[in-house]
Design a protein around this nucleic acid. Structure first.
Length: 429
RNA sequence: GGAGAGAUGGCCGAGCGGUCGAAGGCGCACGCCUGGAAAGUGUGUAGGCGGGAAACCGUCUCGCGGGUUCGAAUCCCGCUCUCUCCGCCA
């Protein structure tokens, strides 16, 4: 959520940020609403101050035993009740209206975010590794002989429908090993604290990180009102909702491995083959809570943490910075890491690392207390480290051999009982 | 799922329908005292919103939301959460 005072101070900058996002300017309407709101608040509080004074005087009259004065004051106060209630209601209504309006406006891009309408304007920051030269036509993950029957889409369709998968045998083991490897690396080498969270949350949590109110159709809700998290960014970030954290405790660097649930509304027909885009998937998430001045440095640090996983796995990737038109709602700057998928012959997103500045913190009232003692909103960042299912795909496609087997990254051996490959018949060896 | 108890400031803990944003204690900050410390002692010590250049003023907040009343931390209703006991259970 945007700070209405910042908007008031510099409406032009606010509108410029919206325009960079491809949205029409809105400051004029918001400022008019804010002005009406403040006038209503002032009227309401003035009336209330008056009522408080009358009540105080009535109390004094009663204490003094002046029945006539008490009755006069009581009657006068009683006569004003409806007007005060109406003034209060109007102030509350306008205050809520302004908040509602602000809640659906996306974060402002930072100055160093490239402008552009869509992904075509994203800017590549760097590449790591070089795609392997195959002496055969590399297959997509679901066509690799070693995976025959182990990525079981028909079984998943029977149980649940499209965009689900049943994993079997070596595929499951590799999937599990990848998640464990990521977590262990983040904890032992990157200093992140491992957290385990619920995946069913209250609407407030979804609102805090920005999924609600605008993107309800992207997620699932239970019959009693809980939401299934689309990412553990929701739970990890909301851990600090409503809190005031001692500045000395920052930064908080967390990681969690959870199930994620997405309706994939609007992605009909996209990535329907294989397990690239699923309704239910696993992700190792990273979230950092820090002071606003350190957020950009933390974003680079988190990006490095995600890249380290790919480097250890020997998977070629490129890192890009998203342009203004391609960024998510809550982000003010986003790095996407795209891994090379030989089967598709292109780089595909496997991680997204965003700094949200104080945008989410303002929504969830998450603050820290600095050395001067004043509470200030924290900065929040989130990033995948990494999407487990997509990493599985990348390992399979990059490691596939002409004979149908898959050569696995040596770094995974400790999590695979020493195995270094999957035989063409699907056995780990 | 059933029964009961509870929720007050950073923490503990008082609080009669009225001058209570709230006693007292702890903690913390800054003084005094001291050669320095401890002890002692003095002062201060929540946040949101609105107004104001500021000082400051107003308003709201005693889990959350309503209600009664001239006036609610205090009375009434609903909700949430916590604890205890019973039941069930991976």
């Amino acid at each position: 959520m945007h700070d209405i005072r910042a908007l008031r101070d510099d409406p032009a900058a606010f509108d410029a940020a919206l325009v960079r996002r491809g949205l029409p300017p809105q400051s004029a309407g918001l400022l008019a609403l804010d002005e009406a709101r403040r006038a209503a608040i002032h009227a309401s509080e003035t009336a209330q101050a008056d009522a408080n004074r009358l009540a105080r005087e009535a109390g004094e009259a009663k204490k003094a035993g002046d029945a006539a004065a008490f009755e006069r004051l009581r009657a006068e106060a009683a006569a004003r009740k409806d007007a005060i209630a109406a003034a209060r209601a109007e102030a509350d209504r306008l205050d809520a209206a302004l908040r509602d309006a602000l809640m659906v406006i996306p974060n402002a891009p930072l100055a160093d975010v490239p402008d552009g309408p869509d992904e075509s304007a994203n800017v590549e920051l760097r590449r790591w590794g070089s795609p392997r030269a195959f002496d055969f036509a590399p297959r997509e993950h679901f066509d690799i002989p070693a995976m025959r029957g182990l990525l079981d889409f028909p079984a998943a369709a029977k149980l649940s429908g499209a965009r689900f998968v049943v994993l079997r045998g070596a595929a499951t083991r590799l999937h599990r090993a990848l998640a464990q490897f990521m977590l262990d690396t983040h904890v032992a080498e990157h200093g992140l604290t491992e957290i385990w969270t619920p995946v069913l949350v209250r609407p407030e949590a979804m609102t805090g990180t920005g999924q609600l109110p605008k993107f309800a159709e992207d997620s699932y809700q239970t019959t009693n009102g809980w939401w299934l998290v689309p990412t553990s960014e929701v739970t990890l970030t909301n851990l600090v909702a409503g809190e005031t954290i001692d500045a000395a405790a920052l930064p908080l660097r967390m990681t969690a491995h959870t199930q994620c649930f997405r309706s994939e509304a609007g992605s009909a027909g996209k990535d329907v083959a294989g397990m690239l885009r699923q309704h239910q998937f696993e992700k190792v998430e990273m979230v950092t809570i820090c002071t606003p001045d350190t957020a950009r440095a933390e974003q680079d640090r988190m990006t490095a943490c995600a890249e380290a996983i790919l480097q250890k796995l020997g998977l070629p990737y490129r890192t890009i910075v998203l342009c203004t038109g391609d960024m998510g709602f809550s982000a003010e700057r986003t790095h996407d890491i795209e891994v090379w998928l030989p089967g598709q012959g292109r780089y595909r997103e496997i991680s997204s690392v965003s700094t949200c500045g104080q945008f989410q913190a303002r929504r969830m009232n998450a603050r820290y207390r600095g050395p001067d003692g004043r509470p200030e909103f924290v900065a929040t960042l989130n990033g995948s480290g990494l999407a487990v299912g997509r990493t599985l795909i990348a390992v399979l496609e990059n490691g596939q051999e002409a004979d149908g087997s898959v050569t696995l990254p040596p770094v995974l051996a400790p999590w695979l009982g020493g195995a270094t490959r999957i035989e063409p018949d699907g056995r780990l060896a």
